[in-house]
C-alpha cells in the first residue's frame, strides 16, 4: 500500500528573516536528514513558525517580509534565481496550525485539490484518494462518505484530511506548524502515530509547543530562543534524547524542564 517516496535532505545556511525593519531570525543553520523527524521547539515569538515558513517559501507571501541566506533541498537552493516558488511548494507540503480544509469541496475533492491547484493531470483519482487517506490513517473512518462536505468532519479529522491532502502531492518534505495545538488528546495521538509512519517515507519538520510530543515523535530537536529585543536563533540542535536528557546550554535545560517560557 505504502508508496515509495524519494525523501530529501534539507539544510539551511545562515537564514535570517526580517519583517520590515525588524529582524526576527538571525543566521539559522539546520540540517534535516531524510527519513527523520525534526522538532522545532521554543517559547512563543522566538521565530520557529517564521522559520518553518521559509522552508517552502510561504514566508515571502507576507507583506514586508525579507530574507537572507539559503535553503537547500537535495543540494539545490530553493531561493535560486530560476526556481519557481510554486514548484518548491509542490515538493514541500505544509500542514497548518488550524485545520483548513476547503469548505466548498467534498472530502474527495479536498484530497485531489492539490493536484488540481498545481495544474497536474489526475490519473486514477480513486486510488490517489484511498492511498492518501490510508497514509493519514483515516480511510476507514471516511471511506463511505467521500462525497460529504469536508466541514462535516470533526476538528481532528479535518486536520488529518489536511495531512492527507498534502500527502496526495507526494511531497519530499512535510512541514507541520503546530498541527495538534487545536486538537484533543485522542486526535493528537492519532496524528503522532501518522507522523511516525510517514517518517519512513519522507522528511518531516514539526513545530510544537508540547515537550512530550517533541520527545515522542522526533529524532532530532532544535531549540529556538529570542532574548529581549534581539532576533531569534537556534540555541541548541541535536538528537532529541540529547536535547531533553542532557542539554548543553543552561537555557535549553531551563526550557525543556519547564522553568520558563
Amino acid at each position: 500500500m505504502s508508496q515509495t517516496t524519494t525523501a530529501a535532505t534539507m539544510h539551511t545556511e545562515d537564514v535570517s528573516v526580517w519583517f520590515g525593519q525588524r529582524q526576527v531570525l538571525d543566521k539559522v543553520n539546520l540540517t534535516f536528514p531524510s527519513h527523520q523527524v525534526t522538532a522545532l521547539i521554543g517559547p512563543s515569538g522566538c521565530g520557529k513558525s517564521t522559520f518553518i515558513r521559509t522552508l517552502n517559501r510561504m514566508h515571502e507571501l507576507i507583506p514586508g517580509a525579507g530574507l537572507a541566506g539559503s535553503v537547500f533541498l537535495d543540494g539545490g537552493d530553493i531561493y535560486g534565481e530560476d526556481v519557481d516558488a510554486v514548484d518548491v511548494r509542490i515538493n514541500i507540503g505544509m500542514v497548518f496550525q488550524k485545520p483548513n480544509p476547503f469548505p466548498t469541496m467534498s472530502i474527495k475533492e479536498n484530497i485531489l485539490s492539490g493536484l488540481r491547484l498545481s495544474g497536474r493531470k489526475i490519473n486514477g483519482a480513486d486510488e490517489i484518494v484511498e492511498t492518501s487517506l490510508r497514509r493519514a490513517s483515516m480511510w476507514n473512518e471516511v471511506k463511505d462518505r467521500l462525497n460529504d462536505q469536508a466541514l462535516s468532519l470533526s476538528g481532528g479529522q479535518q486536520q488529518r484530511l489536511c495531512i492527507a491532502r498534502s500527502l496526495a502531492m507526494n511531497p519530499k518534505v512535510l512541514l507541520m506548524d503546530e498541527p495538534c495545538s487545536a486538537l484533543d488528546p485522542g486526535s493528537t495521538r492519532r496524528i503522532e502515530e501518522t507522523i511516525k509512519e510517514l517518517s519512513s517515507q519522507m522528511t518531516i519538520v514539526i513545530v510544537t509547543h508540547n515537550m512530550q510530543q517533541a520527545q515522542r515523535v522526533s529524532h532530532q530537536t532544535a531549540f529556538f530562543l529570542a532574548d529581549d529585543n534581539t532576533p531569534g536563533g537556534v540555541v541548541e540542535f541535536g538528537p532529541t534524547e540529547m536535547v531533553f536528557k542532557n542539554p548543553q546550554d543552561p537555557r535549553t535545560n531551563d526550557y525543556v524542564n519547564g522553568h520558563f517560557g
Partner: peptide, 19 residues
C-alpha cells in the same frame, strides 16, 4: 484558505478561481 491553496503549489490565479 488562500495560504492552504498556495502551500499546495497553486499559482495565484488557480487559488483564486478554485478556492
Amino acid at each position: 484558505l488562500r495560504m492552504a491553496a498556495l502551500a499546495l503549489g497553486a499559482p495565484n490565479y488557480r487559488a483564486f478561481f478554485q478556492v
